[in-house]
Write a protein that binds this DNA or RNA. Structure first.
Lengths: 261, 261
DNA sequence: CGTTTGCTTGAAGTAGGTCAATGTGAGTGG
DNA sequence: CCACTCACATTGACCTACTTCAAGCAAACG
């Protein structure tokens, strides 16, 4: 089991491919720190020099964009177990803020580890590239929802997609899950006013579409919602068939789960 | 000069790092085909098995998302010289269509070349990852504009960003450039009706903000527009400092330009 | 030369925003 | 323990930025 390495990145990557002993040891060696961050604490600030990637061991984080009129917007939600910073590694400086949305633990994987990773463990390089590409697909779906749906659709879509992503880490998650966002923040994520978000949510509740038991939400009509939004879950089918072969022998089975907070 | 290899990917990648002879030869060997595609021809269709990446040697392409009510949306514009398919390599099947927006030439880089690339040329692997990450940043800016700006802002932002990206390939491009999109298509890209796009454009013209000489557009007040939109050009600062060292000796200087159509 | 594709313009309707006020639980300091 | 604050949810009245519908034109194209 990969657990003997106490490495967040190991358990994250194991979800996609079976890591070899060499691979696990290499990653675990670089990722020694494990830091507790409180809600609201910045993980990456705009203008920061890029510092490698960060694994979110527990808790949630978000990517925010701020405009000078004081409004800010949520462009991306990171769930426990996800890798932060893949969008940044191409740039010298960060374009957007990353902030903890709840208390949580993060594990920095320093940038000096990236070159050896690409050199000695090409399969892991391919894997990072692929994870980045899945991120991009998710972002496309988000942009698509912002550009083409009405308010109801955007909100439904956002909740559906959150649930689907939580289920990746937590197989068999039902229709009830935690949404650690205020209505203001939900508005910032879906591009609506908090007050209209409120009206929509209340409407959903009256309709019997959802139950709210803050901060939990239960989707009572997920099927019909998924039809409404033409929702497809893009988080299921990573294709690893083209990857380079592994270095060393495979030891870890896939799936150790990360508990949702 | 990298030109002796007649490879699109070589000239694209040379823009970011100086490639070695080994690297050039390897890429050029895999990328032999060069296909002429007409406007409207699909490059990737939804559900297609992922087939490696494609370099757009000349012409423009777009990523489209279609909904069942017949509407479609433009999520991404690919300019001459750009790499198509980095968002897809993580998935087994394509989620979105890619279609030629003008006539052009494409060069497929087969997926079977990816594993050797990551194994033998780790620096190229890192480079592909970085290009994917820049794509993602651009997409974030787009999503941000869709989610937070009013119609005027979205349209200004889209034009500014198009100009900025064209300038990457065509240093010293002024404020006049080709926009090979109908107003309907512009609407699909910025999330507005074609008819409102029309009204905005006519307004810009009357204001003296732009000149239109179809299909060319000239931005007469770029500076003040960039202030309005808090526009930052994210396409300038790829950070290659963390890359693994090159295999073989460096031979190519950076920058051979790809002509805009 | 007729047909299609795209641009232009106007009139009318509405989804969603703004403004404003009230309610409510969770701290927090006295 | 209460009083005060603060962040968040709720609700209503009004307003406008954008859409929809409809019609006329110009250029491109078989």
């Amino acid at each position: 089991m990969s657990d003997k390495y106490h490495s967040c990145l190991v358990s994250r990557l194991s979800r996609f491919v079976s890591l070899t002993d060499h691979e696990c040891a290499f990653i675990a060696d670089l990722e020694k720190e494990e830091l507790a961050y409180r809600k609201g604490r910045p993980v990456v600030s705009v203008g920061d020099a890029t510092e490698g990637i960060v694994v979110l061991k527990s808790g949630w984080a978000v990517v925010k964009a701020d405009s000078s009129d004081g409004r800010s917007q949520i462009l991306r939600v990171y769930l426990p177990g996800e890798v932060i910073g893949l969008a940044e590694i191409g740039s010298a400086h960060a374009n957007h803020r990353v902030v903890m949305q709840t208390d949580g633990m993060i594990c920095p994987f320093p940038r000096k580890g990236l070159a050896p990773l690409f050199i000695d463990y090409p399969r892991l390089g391919a894997l990072l590239t692929s994870i980045g590409s899945l991120d991009q697909i998710a972002l496309r779906h988000h942009a698509s929802s912002l550009g083409s749906m009405d308010a109801t659709g955007k909100l439904k879509f956002w909740l559906l997609q959150l649930r689907a992503r939580l289920e990746v880490a937590n197989v068999g998650l039902g229709n009830r899950f935690r949404v650690p966002f205020s209505q203001v923040e939900i508005g910032q994520a879906v591009g609506l006013t908090s007050i209209y978000v409120n009206k929509l949510l209340r409407g959903f509740v009256e309709n019997g579409d959802i139950e709210i038991d803050r901060p939990y939400v239960r989707l009572l009509k997920r099927d019909s919602w998924e039809k409404d939004c033409e929702f497809v879950n893009p988080f299921v089918d990573m294709d690893t068939s083209w990857f380079p072969p592994a270095i060393g022998q495979e030891v870890t089975g896939a799936t150790d789960l990360v508990e949702p907070v």
